[in-house]
Simulated scan of single mutants.
Amino acid sequence: MNLFNNRRRFLGASMAAASGVAVAGTGLIASAQASAAQPGGNVKEPAVIGYPNTKGVQIERVTYPARNMGTSIIANVFKPAGFDQRKTYAAIVVTHPFGGVKEQTAGLYAMHLAEQGFVTLAYDASYQGESGGEPRLMEVPAQRLDDISCAIDFLAQQAYVDAARIGSLGICAGGSYAMGNAQTELRVKAIATVSMFNLGDARRNAMGLLSYEERIKRLKDASEQRSKEARGEPVRLVPVVPESAAEFTDKTPDLYRQGHEYYVTARAKHPNSPNRYAFSSLPLQMAFFPFDQVETISPRPILMIAGELADTKFWSDEVLAKAQEPKELFVVKGATHMDMYDKPQFVVPATAKLTSFYRQYL
């Protein structure tokens, strides 16, 4: 019963976050647009927050098209120490969480895997970070799926990448995007997730725990906001996680308490990750069903990594039950959802497992 109650509080809080308080967005939008306009070239430091590059990984800042948008995606490519342009390497696309950017946990996992001999790519999603797309800070699942394919487009053009050995890794909501993309993106040969978060389920009816009337009310509010923006009114931005610890209650789940610590404090705060998203994109999120055809990924392998104490682990369990072989759930003892983002005692075993997985299947 306690597990059910915790899951109910978690899903309810997820829905509440989706309909958060409006904030003045003009400054954030202008800042994001300025970042997106910057060309590729030298890597901005730090390429990975809180993890110095001491093992000789080469990092290259690249720009490539978001094919269906006519805009550009900015990414960091990580190449292993001793990289040889004449050789070919297995490559891994790393997709960041909802609200994140490439310099945070996606970059950290990309760095660790590059240390193990893979070419990896961590990018900013369309509408976010340094990548293009307006209105700023939109969360558009369909485009997020294609962003992964755009990264594969880039990698497949590089002479040093073996196009038959490309893998996908997604963290948090990036995990549900990696899972959704792989169902139709057959260039992906192996799929892994860390702390998978089903954004569509969290934004809809919370697995039946959100009433139909409440769901429709939120859709109505978001649709009306989109009409306002179409008429030229400011974009309404709402928080991804609580902006202040003062907002916590006894019902705030660990994911959001720890999410605040990760995104809003010095632990991983980044100027291109302002803890906001465009509320008018909520209906697009509700329309996202990333697990619907997960069984079609087989015979390509799936690895899911989740913390033992994560209040989101049930989503990895759901995929494990539905997916066909080969599949595996690797549980990291003592870890919560957010612990898996950057805490060394949990990231190190996760990286070791990812390394053996990709070496086996790529």
Rank of each mutant, 00 (worst) to 15 (best):
Q38S: 14
P239R: 07
V94M: 07
P344C: 00
R187S: 08
A182T: 01
N272T: 01
S281V: 03
A323T: 02
L3V: 12
Q324L: 12
V241N: 06
M340W: 04
Q183A: 01
N198A: 07
L362I: 09
S126L: 11
P80E: 00
E325P: 09
G208D: 04
P349C: 02
K322P: 08
Y64H: 15
K343I: 00
R8E: 12
M1A: 15
G41Q: 12
H112M: 14
T54H: 02
K55V: 13
V101K: 00
R257M: 05
V43H: 00
K55F: 13
I171C: 04
V347N: 10
G129P: 10
D221G: 08
F4R: 08
Q158M: 12
A106I: 09
P52M: 09
Q116C: 01
Y358H: 08
K343A: 06
S223E: 15
K87P: 03
Q116D: 10
F330A: 12
T184F: 14
S126M: 06
T95M: 05
D147K: 05
E134W: 07
G259V: 06
R300W: 02
I152S: 07
L354N: 03
E139Y: 02
S14A: 15
G200V: 00
P80V: 02
S356H: 12
A190S: 04
R226L: 09
T296G: 15
D153M: 11
Y358S: 01
A36R: 10
R226Y: 02
R203M: 13
K220A: 15
K251E: 15
G41W: 08
A182K: 06
G180M: 10
L155C: 02
G56S: 10
T105F: 07
A24R: 13
L169N: 02
K44Q: 13
G41C: 11
M15T: 15
N68C: 11
G100A: 11
M286V: 04
L121Y: 06
F10R: 11
L121K: 08
D317K: 12
G208Q: 07
R86H: 13
D254R: 13
S14N: 12
M111L: 15
Y177N: 11
Q116H: 14
M138D: 04
L255F: 11
L199M: 05
L237F: 08
K220H: 14
Q360F: 14
L121R: 05
F118N: 08
G20N: 09
E243D: 12
I216Y: 12
G232L: 12
M340R: 09
R8I: 13
K251G: 15
A206T: 08
N181H: 09
S168M: 03
D317Q: 14
F288D: 05
Y277I: 05
L255V: 14
P97V: 06
M138F: 03
A81F: 00
S223N: 14
A222Q: 09
D342Q: 06
L282K: 04
Y358K: 07
F248Y: 03
L309P: 02
L3Q: 15
R9K: 14
F289L: 10
A122Y: 01
R215K: 15
K55I: 10
G99S: 08
Q85I: 12
R67Y: 03
G170T: 08
